[in-house]
Amino acid sequence: MLKDVVALVTGASRGVGRGIALELGNAGATVYMTGRTVEEGRSTARLPGTVSRTAEDVTRLGGQGIALRCDHTDDGQVQAVFDRIRQDQGRLDILVNNVWGGYEHFSDGTEFWNEKGFWSMPLARWDKMFHAGVRAHFVASALAAPMMIDRKSGLIVNISSFGAQRNDRGVAYGVAKAADDRLTGTMAYELQEFNVAAISLYPGLVRTESVTNAAEYFDLSNSESPQFLGRAVAALAADPNIMTKSGQVLVAASLALEYGFTDIDGTQPRPLTVDEA
């Protein structure tokens, strides 16, 4: 379905990024992917998975996986990623901005669960959400856009969250995700004349490594695999009328009903509303 398509997925060592890379590979794409973890056991989040293993699995599924070590808070490293893609391929068809910072409190020993409000949050968390989140998405998009504009074709997907529309997800996270949605809308406006689409994509509850490790605290009855998000991205990329969706906030489970795909286990996750998320 996506043979001869070149994609970049940021933050693909594990979780949603890994799932998206796998499904793009399963659809036949050449998938570049970034991550900081290249050796098992070296994850700062203390979770399994490496960007190298994701690339190997993409290739095993029928695509071509290329792993690139990259810290998206370092503009020089990010520039090198895009230079490599331009040198190798001369094009980029899909950019998935998945990388996101600010989650360090789940593994760095800080007393996250004792926080009672934004006034008790470490101030550095705000900076990480924006620098390694919103700004990382902006920088990658700014570097991808010229390659897409040259071909008058392309798709940028920003992985966002219902947290952008709720008041109970923490100030830093909620504001950062809302900014990501506005980033999508304003990029879509400026890219429209070049036939390049920009979309915000919301998952439901995703069975990432972190979630499955804490499964006793979650109701997983309507959850999604990381690959489910990948199937949504692949379906969007294959849609000849994708420009009609540009600038929108879309929910992966709603796209599954529209495009007719299921999760990898054959289930059909129910689309959540903002109140349910």
Rank of each mutant, 00 (worst) to 15 (best):
271 P>L: 05
171 V>K: 00
225 S>I: 06
1 M>Q: 11
170 G>D: 00
107 S>N: 11
272 L>D: 01
48 P>G: 03
185 G>M: 15
36 R>L: 08
132 A>L: 05
68 L>A: 02
209 E>K: 00
59 T>N: 01
129 M>F: 13
27 A>D: 04
105 H>C: 15
51 V>Q: 10
31 V>L: 10
129 M>E: 14
25 G>F: 01
108 D>L: 09
129 M>R: 03
72 H>E: 08
182 R>M: 15
199 I>M: 06
134 V>P: 12
93 D>Y: 11
218 F>C: 01
224 E>G: 09
109 G>C: 02
144 A>R: 05
110 T>E: 06
13 S>C: 07
231 R>L: 07
121 M>C: 12
271 P>N: 03
116 K>L: 11
85 I>E: 04
44 T>F: 15
71 D>T: 00
31 V>C: 08
93 D>E: 06
64 Q>S: 14
218 F>R: 00
168 D>P: 00
243 M>T: 12
23 E>G: 09
188 A>S: 09
24 L>T: 04
67 A>W: 07
210 S>C: 09
223 S>W: 03
275 D>Q: 14
167 N>L: 09
3 K>Y: 12
9 V>L: 09
70 C>L: 02
183 L>Q: 10
48 P>E: 02
77 Q>R: 06
94 I>Q: 04
247 G>V: 12
208 T>A: 04
57 D>A: 14
42 R>W: 15
23 E>A: 12
12 A>C: 08
213 N>H: 10
147 M>K: 10
159 I>S: 10
27 A>I: 09
151 R>F: 13
31 V>D: 06
273 T>F: 13
69 R>M: 06
42 R>L: 15
202 Y>V: 00
153 S>C: 09
63 G>W: 01
254 S>N: 14
60 R>Y: 04
90 G>M: 09
59 T>M: 01
111 E>I: 14
28 G>Y: 07
72 H>K: 12
133 G>N: 04
217 Y>A: 13
150 D>A: 14
177 K>F: 01
100 W>G: 12
165 Q>G: 03
154 G>L: 11
33 M>I: 01
223 S>T: 06
236 L>R: 05
219 D>C: 04
169 R>N: 00
101 G>N: 07
137 H>Q: 14
158 N>L: 12
219 D>L: 05
214 A>M: 12
77 Q>P: 08
61 L>K: 02
41 G>T: 03
168 D>Q: 00
137 H>G: 15
263 D>M: 03
74 D>R: 10
22 L>C: 08
263 D>V: 03
258 E>Q: 13
96 V>W: 05
191 L>H: 09
134 V>T: 14
27 A>M: 05
233 V>A: 10
253 A>E: 08
102 G>W: 02
108 D>E: 02
89 Q>R: 10
270 R>G: 03
53 R>I: 01
3 K>D: 12
144 A>V: 06
225 S>Q: 03
135 R>Q: 09
214 A>S: 12
140 A>S: 11
67 A>C: 02
271 P>Q: 02
206 V>F: 11
177 K>E: 01
248 Q>G: 06
257 L>D: 15
58 V>D: 01
198 A>V: 15
256 A>C: 07
223 S>A: 03
119 W>F: 14
102 G>R: 01
9 V>I: 03
152 K>Q: 15
115 E>K: 05
238 A>D: 13
71 D>R: 05
74 D>K: 09
